[in-house]
């Protein structure tokens, strides 16, 4: 039995109990600092607005329109993310994709791209012949309401793929293998086994995608424009309010946005989501 050295940690063998305490104290102090900082900053914003002003600005037709449009566009984009994200996530999770790391990187790129640039990229794409063809034959996007969905979708889909891949990664392949030997085709195995087993993760991923979409701004500003009663989703409405001095209206919408984010992030955590943004 070795006695802990009590006269200093020169030999570095047994860390001092006092050292442990200090370390713990310091880490917790920083945690507290960050919490106070975040709480203070967000709180200051929330309490700047009086309750009656808040209600009045939220009930303003323009705010209501922004909220409605946001709900529709964010949900549409999230649905699109699901439609695209689930197959992609499944493919990435289950196959050895050739040049996997390249594919993975390409899929992650929109996440690190500044949203403004994502919007510009979309604008540029719709100047190409393919883009023009889409605009004339399928649907107009540039500076139009459907453009919002695309502008949200583009930077968000990576996150959706990422979180949904995590959900599928969490489902042991052997569930599918067993299902296959029991008579499932690959498609049946996906619908009957992988999808139900990944469900919680997928729901969490969906919630996260939805929450993240709420904040999309730069890409919408660039690609769909900030046109009143047309592309004014909440972040755009906040921007327009802020640039013309309607602080209260802007902050009120921000508070609604925050509340929605809090609810959905909380749901995401409760559902045990594990996606990381990286």
């Amino acid at each position: 039995m070795e006695q802990p050295v009590s006269t200093g940690a020169k030999d570095g063998q047994a860390p001092l109990p006092i050292g442990n305490l200090v370390f713990k104290l310091v880490t917790n102090l920083f945690l507290l600092l960050l919490l106070v900082l975040l709480g203070g900053v967000l709180g200051a914003m929330v309490f700047y607005v009086r309750w009656d002003e808040f209600v009045a600005s939220i009930l303003d037709p323009e705010s209501l329109f922004a909220l409605k449009l946001t709900a529709i566009c964010v949900t549409a984009s999230t649905a699109l993310c699901l439609v695209v994200g689930i197959p992609v996530a499944y493919a990435l999770s289950r196959q050895q994709v050739p040049l996997g790391i390249v594919v993975d990187t390409i899929i992650d790129l929109p996440l690190v791209l500044p949203q403004l640039i994502a919007g510009i990229a979309l604008l540029m794409f719709f100047q190409t012949s393919l883009g023009v063809w889409i605009e004339t034959h399928i649907m107009g996007f540039v500076y139009r309401t459907p453009g919002i969905v695309l502008a949200i979708f583009f930077p968000t889909v990576s996150l959706a793929v990422r979180s949904m891949k995590a959900a599928f990664d969490g489902v042991d392949r052997r569930y599918e293998q067993v299902a296959r030997t029991l008579g499932c085709t690959e498609t049946q195995a996906f619908w009957k086994v992988s999808l139900p087993l990944a469900r919680t993760g997928l729901v969490a991923g969906t919630v996260l995608t939805w929450a993240y979409s709420l904040g999309a701004f730069g890409s919408i500003l660039m690609f769909a424009g900030a046109t009143r009663y047309k592309t004014t989703v909440v972040p755009i409405a906040i921007f327009l309010n802020m640039t013309t001095g309607k602080i209260t209206a802007g902050l009120s919408l921000t508070i609604v946005l925050l509340a929605l984010a809090v609810i959905s992030l909380f749901a995401f955590k409760r559902l045990g989501g594990r996606a990381t943004i990286a």
């Binding site: 293998q177 067993v178 296959r180 030997t181 029991l182 008579g183 499932c184 085709t185 690959e186």
Partner: peptide
């Protein structure tokens, strides 16, 4: 494919 071998794993 496994589903057509009638082997249970």
């Amino acid at each position: 494919p496994p589903e057509r071998r009638n082997l249970s794993y």
